[in-house]
Structure formats: C-alpha cells, structure tokens
C-alpha cells in the first residue's frame, strides 16, 4: 500500500529529472523515427512552391528567443525554399528579437543558395506598435519601415523600389509564438486585403489556430517543431526540426507514463488519497 501512496505523490523533482533525461538522451543518441507529412504542412509548401519566380513573400518573425527551438527551424526551412525558388523575401518583425533571428537565418541560408541582400531578400527589422504596425504597413511599407536593420533607407534598397504596400505582396507568412502574430495578420490584413496568409506557430498555439484553418482565413499551418521537421523533409534538407523530433517523441511518452502511473496507483489505492 505504501508503494501506491508513493506512486500517487511522486516528488516533482523526480519527474523533472526523468523528463530531462528523456529529452537529453535522444538528442545525444538519435533514434530517427520517420516523420509523416501532414496536410497542413503540405499546404504551406504548395503555396510557396506554386508562386512564380519574382513573386514577393512577406515573412514575419513574430517570436522571441524562447520559441526559437520550434520556430527557428521553420524559418530556416521556409527561407531556404523561398530563396531557392527565386522569390523576393521581405522579412519584418512584430517582436523585437525577431529581426536578430531574421539576420541569423539569412546569414545561414543566403550564401548556400546564392541570394543577394537588397536584391533577393531584405530585413526591415522591428517596429513597436503591434497590430497598428500591420494597419500602417498595409497602406505604406516605406513609411512604416523607413530603414532596414542596417539603417539603409528602405527607398534606396533595389528590390524595395516596387514593393510599397500590401498590394505588392503575393504571400504573407507569419511565424508566431503568440500575439501579435499570425492571428493579428488574419484579423488586420486578411480581413481587409485579398492576400493569402499562412504561417507557423508553436505547438501549444495550434488548437487556437484550427478555427481559422477551417474557415479558410488561414491556408496551411506549420505546427511547432514537427511542422518544421515535415517541411525539412519536403525540401529534402534535414535540419534542426528533424533533429529534435526523437526527443519530443520520448518526452511525450514519459509524460504519458507519469499520468498513467499516477492513475493506476490512484485506482488501485481505492481513490482514497488525493
């Protein structure tokens, strides 16, 4: 009986320790579970893939360092695909750290695909003001983002000469860890302008985005690290996303195991203990 009591009241530090091991060990010794492509990821891929060369994609970095493990792999995979397809990429950020991550992604991907700053891609950086920034950007990108991150005048950047308002954008992608983010784009841009909106979110935000997917306001969705892993599979470039999937799988199993242990002990112990 004592064992049942212990199993019902496992110290939280023991739970933390076992969970930590379940994350660290698969990262050190990968298992390589196969990753299947979901329809939502396929839809995002198709949107980018079907755009003709020269089309303009707005990629919004609406996240911070905390969400980087989930959204940085998504950003890398998407940027690689966009620049590889010879599309024009305009990166902006509604979160202040987003611009730094945009720089990092560009520095990694651009040399690999031979993209040139100012001609193929640009990083306009962060503006405070949240939803208001999107309303303003839709009317006039140059006024909302007068300079890029390196403080070059937006008007003097070659590729930005013809990209002035939301009407010059062919696809909006928001990678978001919350608001302002994908939902803000749907409500402020999607509701007012005829531009397709897609994006990626952290796994915890997925249920909140499902109604928008069903209503068609949002087309396709990358869901957390698994979304990144699937996209990496689609562009055939394994990266950070696929690398983290084993750890995610095993840690999910560990959490389920703890829930089941607690319940079995609870039921076997006659439901007396809290």
């Amino acid at each position: 009986m004592k064992l049942l009591e212990i199993l019902q009241n496992i110290d939280r530090r023991i739970i933390y320790l076992i969970l930590a091991l379940s994350i660290i060990l698969p990262l050190l010794f990968p298992i390589g579970f196969p990753v299947d492509i979901t329809q939502n990821t396929q839809d995002v891929y198709d949107l980018v893939d079907k755009l003709p060369a020269g089309s303009v994609v707005l990629l919004s970095y609406d996240w911070d360092a905390a969400s980087a493990p989930e959204l940085l792999p998504q950003a890398e995979a998407l940027t690689r695909h966009i620049l590889d397809k010879k599309l024009k990429l305009v990166a902006i950020a509604l979160w202040n750290q987003g611009a730094t991550f945009a720089d990092r992604v560009h520095n990694t991907v651009a040399p690999e695909v031979g993209a040139v700053y100012g001609e193929d891609y640009v990083n306009l950086g962060y503006r405070p003001g949240q939803a208001v920034v999107l309303n303003s950007l839709a009317r006039d990108i140059h006024a909302t983002f007068p300079e890029d991150v390196a403080r070059t005048k937006t008007a003097s950047i070659p590729m930005m000469k013809d990209i002035r308002s939301i009407e010059d954008i062919d696809l909006v992608i928001s990678l978001s860890a919350g608001d302002p983010g994908l939902r803000t784009y749907i409500e402020q841009i999607g509701a007012q302008y005829p531009v397709t909106i897609t994006g990626g979110v952290t796994a915890v935000s997925v249920p909140g985005m499902l109604p928008y997917l069903q209503s068609g306001d949002l087309v396709g969705l990358l869901a957390g690290m698994s979304g990144a892993a699937e996209y990496e599979n689609l562009i055939d470039r394994p990266g950070l996303g696929l690398g983290g999937m084993d750890a995610q799988s095993i840690s999910h199993l560990v959490i389920i195991a703890f829930i089941l242990i607690g319940n079995i002990a609870y039921l076997a112990g006659g439901r007396k203990k809290k």
Partner: peptide, 8 residues
C-alpha cells in the same frame, strides 16, 4: 501581458 494596441 497584452498591450493596449492589439485585439487582446
């Protein structure tokens, strides 16, 4: 943690 200039 929301601001006053967004839908939340």
């Amino acid at each position: 943690i929301a601001s006053l200039s967004e839908e939340t």
